[in-house]
Nucleic acid binder design. Structure first.
Length: 511
RNA sequence: GGGCCGUUAGCUCAGUCGGUAGAGCAUCUGCCUUUUAAGCAGAGGGUCGCUGGUUCGAGUCCAGCACGGCUCACCA
């Protein structure tokens, strides 16, 4: 056996297993303990106790370390969470069993049966009486010290990332916990979880560009949803007073460390409430989630410590004035109502805008330029321009402003909520305004949704609704700099063709 | 889409002034029955992302392309 190519070696060893009568891919394995079970149960047991109890275990996992010593050897079996050491000795396994041990590679999945003891160095170990081949590792795992650090491989081959990088695994376990906590929180408050269409003839509920697709049998173009909103409010009309959906939405826009074309949104709607109720609810919910997931209300995010005990509240205009840079002369509240002044202020920040943009859109742009990056600690920004909020209810006595808030944490927009506009006549007029913007070239302006107007016409109770970006919330609570670190399989371009992915079909390629 | 950076052995990385490819881990051979980054001795392993160009000579310089990262624009 002179071929030292690790890939060829592994294929050869697989053939060798078959030749010796082992099933290369057995169907199941009955075990008494996972490696984690063993560690949990016996980590505290002393050598003497183990000897007295004579504990017989049958476990399985992936080989993460292999230390042969002539006619004996050690290996670490890993179940994804914990490792347990197995000691293989020729005089315990017999010649056939020990031959199997010598055929094993790092990364193979095996079973082991034996009794627990402690080595001289006091490590909890299974003294194996039997080994079982369960699956072959044909592609070697990344190196044991440095692990896998190539970002591209981590995203494309997340399975490898999960095997070797505990931090990656921890993020997704926490993500699951976040979702679980949110569901529990809403379920406990009388919400029901629903599922609404992903394929929609009109992609509404947000200002964004959709993906287009096609249904063959109906010969009909459809869009992938850009929000959950409009169908959930139809359900409020239908007499389901508290509904939520936690699911994927799709926006055909750029990719960045904060944007993936498909992402997970929670939206929930609560009848007979307004946006102030949701500010309180949001604070209660996220405080609970943060504590459950991180174990603390002080959460480290990059160079910051986020304090979930202190939530700031500013109107959009207050935030602009409050966070105004000291070296630029501060505008008056009056200036923020003037189209010309707003344009001038934005130019001062080198923010571009369209001539057609009204005061509301410019005000929102100014807020994003001045205040958004500084909103590190949890902060509610409320009272948004009507112009950028076609589905929100206006404030009493102020048709230019709506009852809407967004939650910012770590400089990112995490949540968006408002008192829902439930007047069908006004909603229709708002859609008409959006169509105007659309005709002026705004591809993200909202489309007319006739059925939604019809639904509102049956009467929707006063309602407050909110969307929370689950990916970004997960970033905050797992200290992740990029959204790709919290999405298992982020969108990447197809990888160029490579060899070595597919195992050869016949000969093991040792020529 | 723009700008900047990266791509060398299965993995993590060096590679000087342009002179013909290196280390550790992994793999293979031999020794080794309580090791744990096991050890000792030896060996094999490269389309230097791809395509061109400059040059006597390119991993190295230049151009284009591919993929990725950061960033700006757009957005949540």
């Amino acid at each position: 056996m002179e071929n030292t190519n690790p890939l060829a070696q592994r294929r050869f060893k697989l053939e060798e297993l078959k030749r010796r009568g082992y099933d290369p891919y057995p169907h199941k394995f009955d075990y008494t303990h996972t490696p984690s079970d063993i560690r949990r149960t016996y980590d505290a047991a002393t050598a003497e106790e183990l000897k007295e109890q004579n504990v017989l275990v049958r476990t399985c996992g992936r080989i993460m370390a292999l230390r042969p010593h002539g006619k004996a050897g050690f290996m670490d079996l890993f179940d994804g969470e914990q490792r347990v050491q197995v000691y293989a000795r020729q005089d315990k396994l017999g010649d056939q069993g020990f031959d199997l041990f010598q055929l094993l590679d790092l990364g193979d999945i095996v079973g082991a049966e034996g009794t627990l003891f402690r080595t001289r160095t006091n490590e909890l170990t299974i003294l194996a009486t039997q080994l079982f081949h369960l699956s072959k590792n044909l592609l070697p795992l990344p190196e044991k010290w440095h692990g896998l650090s190539d970002v591209e491989t981590r995203f494309r081959q997340r399975y490898v990332d999960l095997i070797v990088n505990k931090e990656a695994r921890d993020v997704f376990v926490k993500r699951s916990r976040i979702v679980q906590e949110i569901r529990g929180f809403l379920d406990a408050r009388g919400y029901i979880e629903v599922e609404t269409p992903v394929l929609q003839a009109v992609a509404g509920g947000a200002l964004a560009r959709p993906f287009r697709t096609h249904h063959n049998a109906l010969d009909m173009d459809l869009y992938l949803r850009i929000a959950l909103e409009l169908y959930l409010k139809r359900l409020i009309v239908g007499g389901l007073p508290r509904v939520y959906e936690l699911s994927r939405i799709f926006r055909n826009e750029g990719i960045s460390s904060q944007h993936n074309p498909e992402f997970t949104m929670l939206e929930f709607y609560q009848a007979y409430s307004d946006y102030r109720d949701l500010m309180d609810l949001t604070r209660t919910m996220l405080t609970k989630v943060a504590e459950a997931v991180t174990g603390s209300l002080e959460v480290t995010y990059q160079e910051h410590v986020l304090d979930f005990r202190q939530w700031q509240r500013y109107t959009m205009k207050e935030a602009i004035l409050h966070f105004w840079p000291e070296n630029i002369s501060r505008p008056s509240e009056e200036d923020l109502r003037s189209l010309e002044k707003l344009r001038a202020l934005l130019q001062g920040f080198k923010v571009s805008f369209a001539q057609a943009d009204g005061r509301g859109k410019l005000l929102a742009a100014l807020f994003e330029a001045v205040a958004e990056p500084k909103l590190i600690q949890p902060a509610f920004i409320y009272d948004y321009p009507t112009e950028v909020s076609p589905l929100s209810k206006t404030k009493p006595g102020d048709p230019d402003t709506v009852e809407r808030f967004e939650l910012y944490i770590a400089g990112m927009e995490i949540a968006n909520a408002y008192s829902e506009l439930n007047d069908p006549v006004e909603q229709c007029a708002r859609f008409e305004e959006q169509l105007g913007a659309r005709n002026r070239g705004d591809e993200e302006a909202h489309e007319m949704d006739e059925d939604y107007i019809r639904a509102l016409s049956y009467g929707m109770p006063p309602t407050a609704g909110e969307g929370i970006g689950i990916d970004r919330l997960t970033m905050v609570l797992t200290n992740s700099r990029s959204i790709r670190d919290v999405i298992l399989f982020p969108l990447l371009r197809p990888e160029p063709e490579t060899s070595d992915i597919r195992p050869p079909t016949s000969d093991s390629g040792l020529a």
